[in-house]
Amino acid sequence: MYGLSGGVFGKFRRDARGAAAIEFGVLVPVLALMVVSVTDIGLAIYRKMQVENAAQAGVEYAIAHGFDTNAISAAVVSATNSNAISASPAPVKYCGCATTSGVSSMTCGATCPGGGSAGTYTTVSAQATYWTIINYQVVPTSYGYSTQSTVRLQ
Rank of each mutant, 00 (worst) to 15 (best):
M1W: 10
M1R: 10
Y2W: 12
S5K: 15
G6L: 04
V8Y: 12
F9W: 14
K11P: 06
K11Q: 13
F12G: 05
D15W: 12
A16K: 15
R17V: 07
R17S: 15
G18P: 08
A19I: 14
A21M: 15
A21K: 12
A21G: 14
F24N: 10
G25Y: 11
V26P: 05
L27C: 15
P29C: 11
L31R: 02
L33E: 02
L33N: 08
M34N: 02
M34Y: 02
M34W: 04
M34I: 14
V38W: 00
D40C: 04
G42C: 07
I45F: 05
I45L: 07
Y46D: 03
Y46A: 10
R47A: 09
M49Q: 07
M49K: 04
Q50K: 13
V51M: 00
N53S: 14
N53Y: 03
A54W: 02
A55I: 01
A55E: 09
A57E: 05
G58Y: 00
G58R: 00
V59D: 01
E60M: 11
E60N: 14
A62R: 01
G66R: 08
D68R: 08
D68G: 10
T69M: 08
N70F: 04
N70Y: 11
A71N: 12
I72G: 01
S73Q: 07
A75C: 11
S78F: 06
S78N: 15
S78P: 07
A79V: 02
A79Q: 03
T80R: 06
T80F: 01
N81K: 13
N83R: 08
S86C: 00
S86A: 11
S88C: 01
A90Q: 08
A90M: 04
P91A: 04
P91C: 06
V92T: 13
K93A: 12
K93R: 14
C97S: 15
A98S: 13
A98F: 06
S101A: 12
S101M: 09
G102M: 08
V103K: 06
S105T: 15
S105M: 12
M106D: 11
C108D: 07
C108Q: 10
G109D: 14
T111N: 05
C112T: 06
C112D: 06
G115D: 01
S117C: 02
S117P: 05
S117R: 11
G119W: 02
T122W: 03
T123Q: 08
T123G: 00
V124L: 02
V124K: 00
A126C: 01
T129N: 05
W131G: 09
W131C: 00
T132H: 03
I133S: 08
I133T: 14
I133H: 05
N135M: 03
N135D: 15
N135L: 03
N135Y: 02
Y136V: 09
V138R: 12
T141M: 13
T141E: 11
S142H: 07
Y143R: 09
Y145W: 08
Y145L: 07
T147W: 02
Q148G: 04
S149N: 13
T150S: 04
T150W: 06
V151L: 05
V151E: 00
V151D: 03
R152S: 04
R152I: 06
R152H: 08
